[in-house]
Lab assay of single mutants.
Amino acid sequence: MISLIAALAVDRVIGMENAMPWNLPADLAWFKRNTLNKPVIMGRHTWESIGRPLPGRKNIILSSQPGTDDRVTWVKSVDEAIAACGDVPEIMVIGGGRVYEQFLPKAQKLYLTHIDAEVEGDTHFPDYEPDDWESVFSEFHDADAQNSHSYCFEILERR
């Protein structure tokens, strides 16, 4: 099963200049909980913004210009990325925008964090048809001392 995991502000903004323009430790914990011990696929820009392999996960970098870091697996196509994951129950696609666009048609599940923030962004989550998805989990949280904005975790499964 292919799943996408993303944090989205208003207007589906997911990033600005290779960074997330908010401070939500709870979302980072949600991300870790849902990706640990699963292969993660990301684009080169996302890889560069993280700066290191995510521990406890097979890191697969999709790029037309593969790098030389041998701590991760470099691939040039969506099919190659899927094959590099091996026989696993769930593959997690973690961004960025172009990689989400490439995998959305193949995805069966979306793990979304909806952030109540209007922020400037240069990267967006692809538009998706809500009628194609069923919400199977939703959990709202107010902003607090650690988390700069209110947010809602949601899991959607393709109908």
Rank of each mutant, 00 (worst) to 15 (best):
I94N: 00
W30E: 14
D69L: 09
I61G: 03
Y128G: 05
D11W: 02
H141C: 05
P105W: 08
F31G: 01
Q146P: 04
D11K: 15
A26T: 02
H124S: 13
L36A: 02
D122V: 01
H149T: 06
S77M: 14
T46C: 05
C85P: 11
P53T: 10
P89F: 09
E134F: 10
D131F: 10
P126D: 15
M20L: 00
S135Q: 15
R12S: 08
H114M: 15
K32V: 04
K76R: 06
V72E: 06
E48L: 13
N37W: 09
D131G: 03
M20S: 00
P66R: 11
K106Q: 15
T73E: 09
D70E: 08
G86L: 09
I50Q: 01
P89L: 08
A143Q: 06
F153I: 10
D144C: 12
Y111G: 02
S135T: 14
G121V: 01
P55V: 08
M92L: 15
S63D: 00
S135V: 06
L28Q: 00
G56C: 05
S138L: 12
V78N: 14
H45R: 02
A84E: 04
P55D: 10
A9L: 06
V136R: 10
P25V: 03
R44T: 09
D144W: 07
R98F: 15
V75A: 04
H45D: 03
S49K: 01
D116S: 14
A9N: 15
E118M: 12
L62I: 15
L54M: 10
Q65I: 11
R158N: 10
D131I: 05
K38G: 09
C85A: 10
M42L: 09
P126G: 07
E17Y: 01
H124C: 15
V99C: 13
A107I: 15
I155F: 06
P105D: 05
H45E: 02
L104R: 02
L4I: 13
L36D: 05
A26I: 07
T73K: 11
K38Q: 02
S64E: 10
V40N: 08
N59G: 10
P25S: 07
I91G: 15
P21W: 00
S49F: 03
D87K: 10
G96L: 04
V72D: 12
G121E: 00
K76T: 06
